[in-house]
Amino acid sequence: MAGDVLAEAFFQEGKYVQAFSSYGGAIRGTPVLTAIRVDDKPIRLRSNIDHPDAVVCFDSSLMGPALLEGSGPDTVVLLNSALEPEAFTEWGDLRVATIDGIAIAQKNGLGRIVNSAVLGAFARIMGAPSLDVLARVVYEVSPRKNEENAQCARDGYEMVKMMASTAVAE
């Protein structure tokens, strides 16, 4: 779902996107994966992403080698966690950012639904999509509590924590 929202925001900014998710075999509560490509020209690749520019992890307990496969020194790793980014240096020389999605969700009355906050954080650290477009898309596609979700995206954008090495494209 978060992947679809992010893809829609890039699409509304006029980008070509391709997003695909694991499905079918997934059991409720087990990890699922979504991959997104964004480009200025049509996307022809029909294969997995080998070297991601960013890895977004909605549950930091999943952090580990499997998640980081194909990541390099330039890959940004965004984790949903109350911890500081420096807490994840054990996994290697990574550009880590963290966002306390649950705190933001609870503050806005969304319980433990962290998607919107994490997407806001993503927009900040990657410099795209723009917060205005993202917040509007989050508002439009949320099944309910639309304004609360949009506010979570804005809060995520403001409250993301980055390591010094995690350069921010403003």
């Binding site: 893809a7 699409f11 996107v17 695909f20």
Partner: peptide, 12 residues
């Protein structure tokens, strides 16, 4: 068309 890479891929 193929599962996953086409069937479930969001595209313009």
């Amino acid at each position: 068309h193929e599962a996953f890479y086409v069937s479930h891929a969001l595209e313009p």
